[in-house]
Amino acid sequence: MKRVVHWWTEERRAYLLLVLPAVAVYWAVMAFPTVFSFILSLTNYNGGPIFNNPNIQLVGFTHYVRMLNDPYFWISLKNNGLIMAVSVFGQIPLGFLFAYVIHRKLVKFGDFFQTIIYLPCVISTIIVGRLWQSFFSPYGPFTEFMQKLQPGWENELFFDPHLAILPVLFVILWMYTGTYMIIFLANLQKIDPALIEAARIDGATEWQVLVRIMLPALSGVIVTACILAISGSLKSFDLLYAMTGGNPARRTSVLALYMYDNAFRHSPKYPLANAISVFMVLLSFVLILMVRFTEAKFGGRE
């Protein structure tokens, strides 16, 4: 009897009970749906009971082909790409600039500016979306300002399919620059001030300090910021949902919204929505691996 229970030590029992709640919840609602989504994307399941349903059949990659042939898929992907570009080439450099300026005390009231610049990040995206929608709308202040500058200016920001994404990109830039500022600021503060002082005494200019000391010290953080920006830009949903709803003519759609439309608007197309979801997961991992690869190749010194 004793031999049988030998492996069931107090240590193992404790381990199991301690990890069980977290593992059970996480696997049920995060890991399993990812796998589940992949399986459903290969079937024709479109609602109704999942188990013992004789009508469910494997249909292979049909839905992926349908997705790739849908023009709205490409419009959404392009918008995700634009958001990614604004994040990586807009938010990160601006965030760094603000962090640098505040850390080096180039402006007075750094604390105040830091608080204000980060403020948009704590407000609900829904409220931000509604607020800016009103702000840019024909009855909003933006129209008023533009008409003062240029009498007779017509506000077609939300009607012109080519322009409609611009306010969204602006709001995304405005909203998340603060996050990167906070991240860079926290890491700038970790650099030993004595190191910078020594460099300055040896005659290094501020520019050299920035390029030779600060940027190398932050290279690891910059990689992290890029990964966050890339995965963050695939997450865009709430803001567009509240601000444009993907319109006009679905020109401001993004992948998540495109998936939502296929699943929850009009008649449901769950298999297609699942195919989009799998595509999004794969895309985010591929992009992150690319950043990692670049980091490994060109060396990110921490």
């Binding site: 990812t34 997961v281 992150i288």
Partner: peptide
Amino acid sequence: IGILLTLQSIMVPLFLM
């Protein structure tokens, strides 16, 4: 892995579940 998982991508399976 979950830190980087796009939560948006699981909304449909989660709804069906």
